[in-house]
Design a protein around this nucleic acid. Structure first.
Length: 641
RNA sequence: GCCACUGUAGCUCAGUCGGUAGAGCACCGCAUUCGUAAUGCGGGGGUCAUCGGUUCGAAUCCGAUCAGUGGCUCCA
């Protein structure tokens, strides 16, 4: 019998007969490892434990400590889910069931949606399947055999028909259930210990709204009980800091059925909105941007020229023109066309470039009703939108400055960003030479930041390459926020030009740039990121002054007046409730500072400061010092309150 | 838009078998004058999302509409 050589992770080599399985190798190494083994990594690829190994390779055993094992577990859990569903709903068609971040899902073709009671019953049935400890068995079959086995399931047949002739068709069986699957899987269903089904949802077959609606079940699975508990706890935490909930609790914004998808901002919410806006405005003013305002309403002349009328009309709010009786006008869904119009309305010299138009105008997009969600998907919003018109030789310098500015903005909010560089897509306009230069310029600017970035080949816009900024918040969720896009198409479409040194007309390049993107969505992210406990400069109410008894009402009112005179948002809480009660209200309301004024403080012109979240570690300081300290903290937009 | 679920006081939520609506918080009043996370007592507040149907009778059952929530390829 031929021997093969397996190189273990410690670089030692083990000779075994060809055809030995991962399980057998694990047993040779040690009984403990054999017991813990979930799969084998053969030549870098994860294999089922019982799959025979035919040639020399690197070899490692996967246990529950291996990060890749979770994916394995979750995919197998999806199969166990399908096994249970097939027992309870014998005719169910089987869609896709991949592992996803933190869990898995599986899509089923069933005559009616799953109810919460169904999910409970399925979960109990899964417990049974786990108890029976079925082995996951892999078989390789030919196309005819695959078609025969899944003859009763059109979804699987469709998938089989798409497989190339050179692809291996494998089938996995656990007990009564078999599934077309690439694998690999855990050795048996009994290895699953800690899982939970989370919710059902409708999902189109292959994500295509023209195809039938399948019923998806989402779930999660973990190796350790504590991990499952921690995950469920994390879900609960995320729910607690949901901006829709906090927006209501902290009185920041509301929605009304009369204008679905558009927020009503209260005074407190508007304060946050304005602070974010003022901050961006100040940065842009320092960097030489021109803030402009352009109309909200345009007739279709503009939209035909920009191309929106053909491609984007379904997302635009059309407005009836009384004279023509036609819906020839639309609220603008984007700022770019109007900026190009303004730029094009007079001559520009090469000397004045780059021209940087910034705006905070209101935009409207007619999103599908089902897509609306809190502040993250709205129909009316404002952006920190900017279009920069420049000469090609200015691209590198400008992109460098933009990248620095965007990262500085995120740092101010305590957000960290990762960068993605997206290059020319297959469908594009412009010559290769233009793309060569554009990509080189963008990449050079990116390299100059010294930041790591991910290359997304072919993911650019059809009109130019771009840099996208993915931001992580305090609980590790990712949001795509900023973008820098080079655009060579718009200047052509809008026939933009500038007069060069040679006294001839030249085409500028346009850069589209957003940092926060939609303020609505950005503020939603901030609310969840800070869990409503905003840094001082963003807090709607920065200081709440509490007199101990009504004997100190006047002294407290004087403190409020002094704070306000220094531009600090201060409020007096002199209700007839107890001091304890008012302090609790301040803490629950996440006010960064409470300043208590009792007789001692009133006499000494001091306040007793209580910092949000710091308990009763109070500090007594002169009012003047308190004012100066807060003013400095606000002025620097410090992160901690 | 499509599938499912939800809609009861400002907020969070009870409401049994179809028999005429309730709690806590918030709000208002009175008392309390309080030193770092909820003082006590009393009071006002609801077209049970809207419209229609079934019924002697509907928050409850049925239908439609409106709105919200979870989803709608992280590819066997």
């Amino acid at each position: 019998m031929t021997q093969i050589r397996l190189t273990l992770p410690d670089q030692s080599v083990r000779e075994v007969p060809a055809g030995t399985t991962g399980r057998e190798v694990a047993a040779m190494i040690g009984p403990g490892l054999a017991k813990a083994a979930l799969a084998a990594r053969v030549g870098g690829v994860i294999w089922d434990l019982d799959r025979p190994i035919g040639e020399d390779a690197s070899f490692a055993i996967l246990t529950d400590r291996d990060p890749d094992s979770l994916e394995l577990l979750r995919h197998s859990t999806a199969h166990i889910l399908a096994t249970a569903v097939r027992e309870l709903f014998p005719g169910a068609g089987i869609g896709f069931g991949p592992p996803i971040e933190d869990g898995f899902y599986y899509d089923f073709d069933v005559p009616r949606p799953f109810t919460p009671e169904d999910l409970e019953a399925i979960e109990r049935k899964m417990d049974e399947v786990v108890g029976r400890d079925y082995a996951f068995q892999r078989e390789v079959v030919d196309r005819a055999e695959a078609n025969r086995r899944f003859a009763d399931d059109p979804l699987k047949l469709e998938r089989i028909s798409e497989l190339g002739d050179d692809e291996v068709i494998s089938v996995y069986t656990d007990g009564p259930f078999q599934d077309l699957c690439r694998g690999p899987h855990i050795p048996s269903t009994g290895r699953l210990k800690h899982f939970k089904l989370l919710h059902g949802a409708g999902a189109y077959w292959r994500g295509d709204e023209r195809r039938q609606m399948l019923q998806r079940i989402y779930g999660t699975a973990w190796f350790k009980k504590e991990d499952l508990a921690a995950y469920l706890h994390r879900l609960e935490e995320a729910r607690k800091r949901d901006h829709r909930r906090l927006g209501k609790e902290l009185d920041l914004f509301v929605f009304h059925p009369s204008s679905p998808g558009s927020a009503f901002w209260t005074d407190r919410g508007t304060t946050i909105y304005r602070e974010v806006n003022d901050y961006i405005r100040a940065l842009q003013q320092q960097a030489g941007y021109q803030e402009i305002k352009t109309p909200l309403l345009y007739n279709k002349l503009l939209w035909e020229r920009s191309g929106h009328w053909g491609k984007y009309r379904e997302n635009m709010f059309l407005v009836l023109d009384n004279e023509s009786g036609e819906h020839d006008f639309s609220l603008k869904p984007m700022n770019c066309p109007s900026h190009h119009l303004l730029f094009g309305m007079r001559k520009h010299s090469y000397r004045e470039l780059p021209v940087r138009y910034a705006t905070f105008d209101v935009l409207h997009r007619n999103e599908l009703t089902g897509a609306l969600a809190g502040l993250t998907r709205v129909r009316q919003f404002q952006q920190d939108d900017c279009h920069i018109y420049l000469r090609p030789d200015q691209i590198a310098g400008e992109v460098h400055a933009l990248t620095q500015m965007i990262l500085a903005v995120y740092a101010t909010f305590g957000l960290t960003a990762t960068l993605k560089f997206a290059t020319r897509p297959p469908q594009r306009i412009g010559e290769d030479a233009m793309w060569d230069r554009a990509e080189a310029d963008l990449r050079a600017a990116l390299e100059a930041t010294g930041l790591p970035y991910e290359l997304k080949e072919g993911d650019g816009a059809f009109y130019g390459p771009k840099i996208d900024f993915d931001v992580s918040d305090s609980i590790g969720r990712k949001w795509q926020l900023g973008t820098i896009q080079l655009d060579y198409a718009a200047p052509e479409r809008f026939d933009l030009g500038y007069v060069g040194e040679d006294n001839a007309e030249h085409r500028p390049v346009v850069i589209h740039r957003a940092m926060c993107g939609s303020f609505e969505r950005f503020i939603a992210i901030l609310i969840e990121h800070f869990a409503g406990a905003f840094p001082l400069w963003l807090s709607p109410e920065q200081v709440r002054v509490l007199p101990v008894t009504d004997q100190q009402d006047e002294a407290a009112a004087r403190v409020v007046a002094r704070l306000r005179a220094a531009g600090i948002r201060a409020a007096l809480d002199a209700g007839n409730s107890t001091l304890n009660y008012r302090i609790r209200e301040g803490e629950v309301g996440k006010v960064p500072y409470m300043a208590v004024v009792g007789q001692r403080e009133a006499d000494a012109d001091t306040v007793a400061i209580r910092v949000r979240g710091a308990g009763n570690k109070q500090e007594v300081v002169p009012v003047a010092e308190f004012v100066a300290r807060l003013a400095a903290q606000i002025g620097s937009r410090a992160l901690d309150a």
